[in-house]
């Protein structure tokens, strides 16, 4: 920024208290760091944890049903069948987080494809694709999700695909907007001028320049997918027992709310923690990537 512009911005009196801005940035940054740490910890615990705990997630122990935490090695207590809650939480983490990541990959890929195609070709193709996106967004996504899940045999793979099928629209919108604005810029025109074919221009020029917003949207999509899995499974159309997911662990929790509240509290906390972590990271990334755009 030139010094004249610097003072000009000062003159218009739109400055922000400097100390607190740095503090805020720091704080945001800390939240993102917290998010990354929590995600890494959850993934590690889910992958390694179940081997370290001397209980099997499916081992039914009728004598120790509803053991409140901590109970003789059952750190988080036991459920209505006497199964160790902690090991089930970690096993459920494997499922819920996998679905989150996989659905993110599928929906980001599909949303990017739709967005780039619409943004690059424009015209009737753009109108048709974006109208389709608009129409998809008219439904409450949970409605579509439930209907699809109710009619399709639920498994990790199908639930992942169903969540992806109802999560790609935001990515498509973001990418379409980016690509459309990038297209107007000189270097894309230059690439076309020298006769680069359409597909080449899309992959080599447009995509790398739209990568920032895609990464942000993808991170937020993981949060969304974890949440969606929880909703469908809670409502009984998602991951089926005896396989555990954070959502279906809450399935039966409501009826034991008075006697065994920990059955409801722990899985919900895990969902909130993981979703919040991805949201924090996404938010931090958005700030960081915006800052880089400003410097250009």
């Amino acid at each position: 920024m030139s010094s004249a512009a610097a003072i000009e911005s000062v003159e218009t009196a739109r400055t922000v208290k400097p100390g607190s801005r740095a503090w805020r940035r720091f704080c945001r940054h800390r939240l993102a760091l917290f998010g990354i740490a929590a995600i890494v910890l959850m993934v590690l615990a889910s992958v390694v944890g179940p081997w370290l705990i001397p209980f099997d997630q499916l081992k039914i122990d009728i004598r120790h049903r509803f053991a409140p935490p901590p109970w003789e090695g059952h750190l988080f207590g036991t459920d209505m069948l006497g199964r160790d809650l902690l090991v089930r939480l970690l096993m459920a983490g494997r499922i819920s987080l996998s679905i989150g990541f996989l659905a993110m990959i599928v929906s980001t890929a599909f949303g990017t494809f739709i967005g780039v195609t619409a943004g690059y070709y424009g015209g009737a193709i753009r109108v048709a694709l974006m109208r389709f996106v608009d129409a998809m967004l008219c439904f409450p996504s949970i409605f579509l999700l439930l209907i699809l899940a109710a009619f399709i045999q639920p498994s990790v793979a199908t639930i992942t695909l169903i969540i992806a099928a109802t999560s790609w629209m935001e990515v498509a919108r973001v990418v379409e907007g980016q690509v459309r604005s990038l297209r107007e810029r000189d270097f894309i025109l230059a690439a076309e001028m020298i006769g680069a074919p359409g597909r080449y221009v899309m992959l080599r020029e447009l995509l790398p320049n739209a990568i920032g917003p895609i990464v942000v949207a993808a991170t937020l999509t993981v949060a969304r997918a974890v949440l969606m899995e929880a909703y469908v499974s809670f409502l009984g159309y998602g991951i089926q027992a005896p396989m555990a997911s954070w959502g279906n662990m809450l399935n039966n929790a409501q009826q034991y709310l008075g006697s065994a509240p920990w059955l409801a509290i722990f899985p919900g906390l895990m969902i909130t923690l993981s979703v919040a972590s991805f949201n924090f990271v996404g938010d931090g990334l958005r700030d960081a990537l915006d800052a880089r755009l400003d410097l250009r």
């Binding site: 003072i7 000062v10 003159e11």
Partner: peptide
Amino acid sequence: GESGSGKSVTSL
């Protein structure tokens, strides 16, 4: 003054 000379800030 030119922009950035402080004339507007003075008046504000």
